Amino acid sequence: MSTSLSPWATEVFGEQAQPVRTLLGQALRNMQANAQAAHAQAESRTNHTFGTSRWQNQFERLQDELMDLPGATPVKPFGFPFELMLVRGGLLFPFLYSKTKADVRKARIPSESLLVKELFTFAPEPQHVQGEFDLDLGVAADVVEPRGGLATLPEGTRLVLVPFACNTSELLEAHWGIASLGENRRLMWATEPETLELPQSVTPHRTRLTGIPEQAGASELQGTTFADGSEPTLTLSSRAASDRHRAVPPQTEAEPVEDQTSEDDATH
């Protein structure tokens, strides 16, 4: 595979174009390794564990690899649980387009959510060829405005798609390029989607779970339950004579103390 950079990559990422392309492949390899490890540890009869782990890792492992690059910044879209990476003028969006090898030029975006619509405001305008039966009824299309961290992106930011194909067995292929969003979630590529090199080795950024920790036995758990604890010492006090004469009922519990904190404090 040729390692020469396309003009669009150099235009978007500048001198970071080559490192970005290399690290994208590494991030996806790490994603696959983590998802497979989670799937194996869960011993699940379904692929749910793999899918959930893969979805999380496709964003977090990419951030691990790119964070130290000059000009790299994490961006938090509104209502999205993960951060996307902005490097120079390119906002990177990785997504699964197939579970088997397939022509990426015919790929569709997984869903046309509000987040996807906001992301594609940083993509080229889709080309539309008016068909014979298309009618112009003068109805304006909905205008989507980026929110959250996307609203702070500098003018001229370009959305760079990173579609990849994988399953529980292997990471099949990955690409990058620039595309607009056409009808029925179909991608209309403004650049030829280029294949990313996928390394065989994994770069660990933290300790991975490689085995189930040894669980404590019954003998080790003795004396650790509430019933095994020592009896509390009760402090008894007699009532004052004046309280007895006035028939004041005895107080069995201390008055509750009003809590000075609340969950709202966590937001400040």
Rank of each mutant, 00 (worst) to 15 (best):
Q130R: 12
D142N: 07
G156F: 06
G156N: 12
L137W: 10
L137Q: 11
Q130P: 01
V162M: 08
A141M: 14
G148T: 10
R158G: 01
V160P: 01
E132F: 09
A141S: 13
P146M: 07
E145S: 12
V143W: 01
P146S: 08
V144N: 03
D136P: 05
F133N: 13
A140V: 09
L161M: 07
L159N: 00
A141Y: 04
D136C: 01
R158Y: 01
P163F: 05
L150M: 11
V162H: 04
T152G: 01
V144G: 00
P146A: 12
E145K: 11
L137A: 08
A140R: 12
R147A: 08
E145G: 00
R147F: 02
Q130S: 10
R147P: 00
T152K: 13
L161G: 01
E132P: 07
L150W: 03
V160G: 05
V143C: 07
L137G: 11
F133Q: 10
G148L: 06
A140K: 14
V144D: 02
T157W: 09
A140D: 10
L161A: 08
R158I: 06
V160N: 02
F164W: 01
V144R: 02
A151K: 06
G131A: 02
A151L: 05
E145N: 03
Q130T: 10
D142Y: 01
L153T: 07
L137Y: 04
D134H: 12
E145L: 15
V162Q: 03
A140Y: 02
L150T: 03
T152R: 13
L150H: 03
L153F: 04
G138Y: 01
G156R: 00
L137D: 07
T157Q: 10
G138C: 06
